[in-house]
Design a binder for these strands. Structure first.
Lengths: 206, 206
DNA sequence: GTCTATAACGGGATAGAC
DNA sequence: GTCTATCCCGTTATAGAC
């Protein structure tokens, strides 16, 4: 078999995304990966560690690219405050790009879900993975919106995270709710639509 | 004991909100409710039906109030398009109000989570509970934003749902990510902040 | 490194006494 | 309507052969 470990990661990614951390059993994962149950424990020791490995594999390069893009956009600004849309795009685009080439959307769905599974294993993910990136992007947003009070910025970032995570999650829920009224169009302009929406929200009023 | 059925509903609400549908076991629920396991099956037959009952109990009156407020705000508009902020407030305020009086926040957290648990039992909830309300509010938003293409409105509603659900879910994730940079201030202006943010996003550009 | 077999436990559901 | 006792299955995890 061509790399057991990776096949486990792929299956886990897909099933965690589809059924959540609690909802996806190791047995379902090994069946999907066509692998023996013991192999999971050999390579990852525990279910929780498997989730962290799944997240790590994709998120580490995404976060690197995010930081690189943010540096680019700050270099372009040359000392002046960066543009809100550019900062948002630096954060969101890497995740979307990865999702489109290579069909890694399961991972995006998973990340979207983890925002909702607060309180358990999910917190580990955010604490270990996002601390550094979040710090840098918050500073950039604060510079991009100098007139916005600190406290208000925090709330708006909270709303931004919500809209972003929900978009990562896919449109299934919205389609169920807006049934007959709306069906999602092509995916590409989605990124631009999202950024436009969020930037307007961040700049609201004065 | 003063009403077994209600104590089960209360415990289920809290634990489903805290650990998700899969993560909260019936045994944990009956322990919290100080009730026997068989009582759950007697009153609700199945775990899934219990979740639906939990949601129904609170969501039915909330959705009634939403429709009433929407009618009010359309009557005030007297034939002219309603104001975006008013439509948003008619939808969001009833959930917030219930959460603040009586301390029913567990239910809001639960609803927020269900948006993320797409694909399973959660879809049942949305299909059975939101169809009518969603239809009415979508029409109202379309009238409030006549210049916005139908397709674009759908996407923006999608973003609105995301920000709203995440706010219902509480700020734990955002606090973990923005640690040291932000701590949520008092809850009351939150509703106004959210509506201002969403309205600006809905009206973005032209 | 990969398998089989099994341990040890917790899950939802049910029968039947009271 | 409420309880005890139990069924039966799926769960994670591990021991030990190959």
């Amino acid at each position: 078999m061509i790399d057991t470990k990776q096949r486990i990661l792929d299956a886990a990614e897909r099933l965690f995304a589809e059924h959540g951390y609690e909802g996806a059993s190791l047995r379902a994962i090994i069946a999907d990966a066509k692998v023996n149950l013991a192999a999971v424990h050999y390579h990852f020791h525990t279910k929780e560690a498997l989730l962290l490995a799944v997240v790590d594999r994709r998120l580490a390069p995404i976060n690197e690219e995010r930081l690189k893009l943010l540096e680019d956009c700050e270099r372009n600004a040359a000392g002046r405050p960066p543009v809100v849309e550019d900062v948002l795009k630096a954060f969101i685009a890497p995740a979307f790009r990865l999702a489109q080439r290579g069909s890694h959307e399961p991972f995006m769905h998973l990340m979207g879900r983890l925002y909702g599974e607060s309180g358990e294993v999910a917190h580990l993910v955010f604490k270990t993975q996002f601390r550094k990136v979040a710090q840098r992007f918050l500073e950039a947003l604060a510079r991009a919106l100098p007139q916005l009070p600190h406290d208000e910025l925090g709330w708006r970032v909270h709303f931004v995270i919500g809209a972003m995570a929900h978009t990562f999650r896919g449109t299934a829920v919205t389609e169920a709710v807006t049934e007959g009224f709306w069906h999602p169009s092509e995916a590409h302009p989605m990124l631009e639509r999202l950024i436009k929406f969020l930037a307007a929200g961040l700049r609201a009023e004065g």
